[in-house]
Simulated scan of single mutants.
Amino acid sequence: MYQNSHLEDFIEQLYASLSIRQPEQLNKYLIAERLNIGIYLSRNDSEAFYWDGRYYIFINRDLDSRQRWQDFGHELCHVLRHSGHQGRMPPLFRQLQEWQADNFMYHFCVPTFMLQKIHLPYDQFEAIRLIAETFNVEYDFAFKRLEMYQRKDVFQMKYALTNR
């Protein structure tokens, strides 16, 4: 049986608090509005920051819709789970935050609780295509997210079998 991580539980609870339960409800503007986060398209690289009592996420407008969704997930992690100005942090701490934001992005953009409700085809390429289309993410992103999900599932099955 699949056991959620703390991050997967956090994301599922976040979506529940926003009354979002289905992939077709995944919308960065709706989510930002419900979280009281300003969201804007920008000519610059995507970034998040806090100013005058409110969080803002700026998304690079040159990205396509899939890349914007993915960047939104990355930047949202900084808003929800990080504090401080990265320009004033030691490089290794900044690197840690970026790794955390990337990991969050994969789980936020393709939430485990939604992924588990989908009947994934046995054919790997078809499963990747289905994830990419269902969650509006790039194919490479869908491949990596599927790999993360399957790797964890296999690890948990092996652990359960060896610890009976």
Rank of each mutant, 00 (worst) to 15 (best):
C77A: 13
R54N: 04
L161W: 12
Q67P: 00
E47S: 05
E133Y: 04
M114I: 13
S5P: 03
A127V: 05
I131C: 00
K28Q: 05
F113P: 02
H74G: 04
R68S: 11
D64H: 12
M148F: 15
L146A: 05
I20D: 00
E24A: 05
K28R: 10
I131V: 09
M114P: 04
A32D: 05
S19E: 14
F143I: 01
L63G: 01
Q116Y: 02
F155N: 07
Q95S: 15
F125E: 12
K117E: 15
F104C: 09
Y29E: 10
F93W: 15
P23Q: 02
D52H: 09
A160E: 13
N163K: 11
F72P: 04
Y106H: 15
D71I: 02
L14M: 07
R54Q: 13
N44D: 09
E33W: 04
R94L: 06
S5Q: 08
D62K: 11
F93D: 10
H85A: 09
L63I: 03
Y29N: 11
N103I: 11
Y50V: 02
E12F: 05
I31H: 00
H107A: 15
Y55L: 02
I11D: 06
A132M: 03
T134Q: 01
S19L: 07
F143K: 12
Y50S: 03
Q25L: 03
D9P: 00
K117F: 03
Q95M: 13
S46A: 04
H78V: 11
R43Q: 03
F104S: 08
H6N: 11
D153C: 01
E138A: 09
T162A: 12
T162R: 11
F10H: 10
F108H: 15
G73K: 05
V79N: 05
L146T: 07
F155P: 00
G84F: 12
S46I: 04
N136G: 00
Y159L: 15
V137S: 01
I37A: 01
D123I: 07
E126P: 00
H74I: 09
R145K: 14
F143W: 12
Q67L: 08
A142S: 05
E147D: 14
I37S: 00
L7E: 15
D64A: 08
R68H: 08
M1E: 10
D52A: 10
R68V: 11
L7V: 09
L30S: 06
Q70G: 01
D123A: 06
Q156N: 03
P23M: 05
R164T: 06
L146P: 04
Y15Q: 05
Q156Y: 11
M148Y: 15
F58G: 04
Q150S: 08
E138R: 10
F108P: 02
Q13C: 03
D45P: 00
V110P: 00
L130K: 14
S19I: 07
N4G: 02
I57F: 06
Q150E: 14
Q156E: 14
W51M: 06
Y40W: 08
F72N: 07
Q95K: 15
R94A: 14
